[in-house]
């Protein structure tokens, strides 16, 4: 490394660190608030005067927190697996096949992103009731089984795969589905990792639909359960912060595991305009 490189590198680190502090500050605040009493939670200090683990005890003992945690896990894992498979399949088809109606289908899928969830919950709920899905995990998960964001992301990535790889496989007699699973999917691992992370986060934190469809506390997901700490007289922010702190831990672990894939994988597949 020469001197100018080292100089830019130092500047880069300083710059990145300053930004990182700004980025992480509210998160640190959330974490420190979870150790505060309800009196202290409104004070602006980052270090609690009298740190307490009472909030954690309360959350684990007086609510169905472990059950909510499990529910969220089931919902996020199942929808993420489904999204990874179907979104790649659709993305691949839209990127690499020529067929009539291709662009229209793409735009139509994108158009589903343009309606706020608030306007979809009523027909969904009627559907759940008429099909007898009440009080099932399926009722919470079904709207998220395929995501349009994911289709778009995968389409962008799939379009960068060189055609000759696919044609070579065809000549070797690999079936069309075999090409998708064995040739294409390994090439887009980084995109899959990215999609997995962001889809998991999205479903883990989803609120409105699970709130509406879950009838009894044992079917709540974490965000729905946590919303019960905010009531008419008073919002127990120390409990909400505690719940949020606990609920982000699996996300951090998930991110640490998958983020290596993002960088490694992409470097191999190439992503050329």
């Amino acid at each position: 490394m020469n001197r100018t490189d080292r100089k830019t590198s130092v500047i880069a680190y300083i710059f990145l660190t300053i930004f990182a502090i700004v980025m992480v500050f509210p998160f640190v605040w959330m974490f420190s608030s979870s150790f505060k009493t309800s009196e202290e939670v409104y004070e602006m200090s980052l270090i609690p005067d009298e740190p307490t683990v009472e909030n954690y005890e309360y959350i684990f003992n007086y609510s169905l927190f472990p059950r909510w945690f499990l529910n969220s896990m089931i919902v996020a894992v199942v929808t993420t697996i489904s999204v990874l498979f179907f979104d790649s399949l659709v993305g691949y088809t839209l990127a690499k096949y020529t067929f009539p109606g291709k662009n229209i289908i793409f735009i139509l899928i994108l158009s589903t992103l343009m309606i706020p969830t608030e306007m979809l919950v009523i027909p969904w709920y009627i559907m759940v009731r008429q099909l007898g899905w009440m009080e099932t995990y399926w009722s919470i998960m079904f709207p998220g089984m395929i995501s349009a964001f994911g289709v778009f992301l995968m389409r962008q990535f799939m379009s960068t795969i060189p055609d000759y790889l696919i044609d070579a496989a065809r000549i070797d007699g690999v079936s069309e589905f075999g090409i998708f699973i064995r040739i294409v999917m390994p090439l887009v691992k980084p995109a899959l990792a990215t999609l997995a992370i962001f889809n998991f986060v999205g479903n883990w934190n989803a609120f409105l639909w699970p709130l509406i469809v879950a009838q009894t506390p044992k079917m709540y997901t974490l965000p729905v359960g946590l919303s019960y700490f905010s009531s008419e007289n008073l919002t127990s922010w120390e409990l909400i912060m505690t719940g949020a702190a606990v609920s982000t831990i699996p996300l951090i672990i998930f991110f640490i595991i998958f983020q290596k894939q993002i960088v490694k994988g992409i470097a191999m597949s190439g992503l050329k305009g």
Binding site: S9, Y13, F27, N205, P223, I256, Q259
Partner: peptide
């Protein structure tokens, strides 16, 4: 551009996105 600790910075930067929006 940086070689060391890149994963750590990535984690810090993505923190706001994984924290519930209400919080």
């Amino acid at each position: 551009k940086v070689r060391h600790l890149q994963w750590f910075y990535r984690l810090l930067y993505v923190m706001p996105y994984i924290t519930p929006l209400v919080v």
